[in-house]
């Protein structure tokens, strides 16, 4: 299932609908990295609220997305990680270092607007 990417002002929002296959994740990565420059977006929010399992591939892909988007000149925030998922990830050593995280979409947007204020 493909992940829809929505444009909201200067932010791109990708919302995971359910568990994704590895191919879907790769596709999402390419889509985001291309569109972030195409729309001149300043940030990307990836919403994973619907994911109740996060395997190592998904976690690594999220980190790669964040780092690639950084290289393309924008920020990334991962939002909506479930408490159980968060602890399972940490136990597996998947801590998404260097990637901003927020509680949910609202928090993610608040974090970004704060950041835009200080950087612009």
């Amino acid at each position: 299932m493909e992940v829809p990417i929505l444009k909201q002002g200067a932010v791109l929002i990708a919302t995971f609908q359910a568990a994704l296959s590895d191919a879907d994740l790769n596709q999402l990565r390419m889509g985001l990295v291309q569109q972030v420059v195409k729309f001149r977006s300043r940030a990307v929010i990836v919403d994973v609220t619907a994911m109740d399992v996060m395997d190592s591939f998904a976690s690594r892909t999220l980190r790669e997305i964040a780092h690639m988007i950084r290289l393309r000149g924008a920020d990334t925030v991962i939002v909506g990680i479930q408490p159980e998922v968060a602890f399972a990830m940490v136990q597996l050593g998947l801590t998404l270092e260097g990637v901003a995280t927020a509680l949910d979409l609202e928090e993610g947007l608040a974090y970004l607007s704060e950041k835009f204020k200080t950087t612009s």
């Binding site: 991962i78 998922v85 968060a86 602890f87 990830m89 940490v90 801590t95 995280t101 928090e107």
Partner: peptide, 12 residues
């Protein structure tokens, strides 16, 4: 330490 990291994943 893991609790601290997990909390960060929740944005705290």
């Amino acid at each position: 330490v893991q609790t601290v990291e997990a909390s960060r994943l929740l944005g705290a």
